[in-house]
Each structure stands twice: as C-alpha cells, then as structure tokens.
Simulated assay, not measured.
Amino acid sequence: MPMAEIPLCVWRKRGHSFVFRGHAIRYWTAGQGEPLLLIHGFPTAAWDWHYLWQPLAQRYRVIACDMLGFGDSAKPRDHEYSLLEQADLQQALLKHLGVDTPVHLLAHDYGDSVAQEMLARHYEDRCNLASCVFLNGGLFPETHRPVLTQKLLLSPLGWMLGRAFSREGLARSFSQIFGPQTRPSESALDDFWSLVEANNGPRILHKLIGYIPERRVQRDRWVSAMQRGDVPLRVIDGAVDPISGAHMVERYCELIPSPDTVLLAGIGHYPQTEAPVQVLKHYLAFRDSLEFPPRKLACS
C-alpha cells in the first residue's frame, strides 16, 4: 500500500529556523520518544524523508534539517563547505533542541558521510550515538562511482556547469540513478528542483561537491569507526544504484565485522522515495532488534 506523501508546500510551512555560525538553517521536528536524526543527501534536502516522516514520528522524536548549502537553508557563495562542518551543524541542531540523550541516525548519500563523521566522534567522546542506519552512499571512496555531472562539477570548469545546471540536468541525472520502475514523477522533479534552485543553489554546487575528495581524506578514520562494532549499524541499499549500489554493499561485507545489510532489488539511489514501505519495514525491524534482541538458549 502506498505511503502518504507530504507535499513540499506543506512541508515548507512546517519548518522552523535557527542560526548556525551566522547562517539561517531550516529544520523540522515531530513526534516523541527516542531522538532519531535524519540526514539527507546531495543535492537535495530534508524533504527527501517526507514519505517516512509521519510513520517514524509515531514512534520516535524525528529531527531533520536542510544542511548548509542545501534546500531552504542559507547557501553562502563565498564559503568552504565541509562534511566536518555539517556534522558540527547536526550537533548544534541537537543542542538547540535540547537533545541530551543518545541519538539514532538514519542517513542517505552525502548524509552517510556526515553520519560517519558523527560515528567517529562518538568513539572520540564528542558525540553520543545509539545506532546508525545508512541508505545508499559512498561509505568507501574506492567503491563510489560518481555520475558525469559530479565529475564535471569537480573539474576546474565546475563553477560554469553549476551556473548552467537546470531542472532538465537534474532530471537527466536522476534518470540514471533511480531504479527503472521507480523514477520520480514530473511533479516530484519540479519539487526536487525547487529545493536545489532555492537561494541561488546552482551557483554553489561546485563548492558542495568538494565532499568527494574530503571523503578520501577521512576514509581510514571513518572506516575504523564503523569497524568498532559498539554502535549497531545497518545498511539498507537500493541494489541497482550505479553510484553506491550492490557493489558498495559487497565491499561493506568485506570490511565490516558481522555486517547487517539489506539489498532492495530493482531500487536505485533514493530508496526512501523509491521504496519507502520497504525502507520503513527494514528500519523498524532493525530498531526492534535493538529493543528485543534474540533470546539465547542456555546449554547445560
């Protein structure tokens, strides 16, 4: 049964703002219970979670923001964007909301890297995490396969491509990375583009794309954190994603002890919008396993 969406116009009205290092950040929160922080990907925004928002809010205190440079948040032109700063932002948001208990993370794409940084900080006693679930993202630089648009944005001419980037360019990119039967509608593409375009967003795309080389710098620290095993982890991954699909999960299983992974057949890079019912099912099963672990039988 399809899940109810939250129209973008309604979503925007429900947002709040706070100031992070002099920049206005839009955020959303709903529900009660254990805090669950949702971290979106590139080049979109927190609205990516709208199908899951209400079902998750029935069980948890869900929190999400448009990160700096994304969606309806500030997009300063003369700014050096960093995944480390985005992790600072997430922690500042939690402090702003008075969250002082361990936080669960659900992240996607670019947000996976922010979550990896927060996981590393957890083991450095700078952050307090209860669990983390990754959706399709470049957890390992050696398995990340950027699309042509990302490669061009990384080139010396990236600033020109960003200025020329359009809804049609976004549609072409998304047609390559979504599943063949789960591509976004024209209306959804309009909404995604509205969030990219807000506050002159295309002018900074070449700056935001710096997360790809930054991942390489932090790779060993982040992978070491994932290998520690004290924070429960799960990967829920669209298998046919050409960027971070089944090949990324294969690498995850090679490197992470006792890997907990779910592959979604026929689903691409945006499982939370392509297959929200499946993502919700597998996420709740993961959380239930933390609350009700399998009983071990004693032997005599």
Rank of each mutant, 00 (worst) to 15 (best):
L68C: 05
G238S: 13
V262Y: 03
S131K: 06
R12A: 02
Q91R: 10
L93Q: 01
G138Q: 11
G33M: 04
V217W: 08
G31D: 08
Q91M: 08
E168M: 11
P271H: 15
G210Q: 11
L8M: 09
V279T: 06
W159G: 01
I212W: 07
A198D: 04
E168V: 04
I267Q: 03
V277S: 14
V19M: 11
A298T: 02
H144D: 07
A87I: 06
L94R: 14
V19G: 02
A120Y: 10
R121E: 11
H282Q: 09
E34I: 01
D66R: 14
T143Q: 14
A57H: 13
G162W: 00
Q32G: 10
L97I: 06
T182K: 13
A87L: 11
A246G: 09
G162D: 06
A171K: 13
F174H: 05
G158I: 00
E254Y: 06
C132G: 01
Q278P: 07
P76H: 02
L93Y: 07
S173Y: 15
P146C: 10
H16T: 02
H79I: 03
G179I: 05
P102H: 09
Y270N: 15
G210W: 07
H282E: 06
A45Q: 11
S289V: 04
A164Q: 07
V10M: 04
S113Y: 15
D125H: 14
A107M: 00
H108F: 07
P202G: 14
P293W: 13
L135G: 02
G69C: 08
V223F: 10
A64M: 00
G41P: 00
G69I: 00
G15V: 01
V277D: 15
H16Q: 05
F192Y: 12
G138A: 13
G201I: 02
D230R: 15
S175W: 05
E197C: 05
W47D: 02
Q54I: 00
Q58N: 02
V240G: 04
Y123S: 08
S289L: 01
L157M: 09
G245Y: 01
A45T: 03
S300R: 15
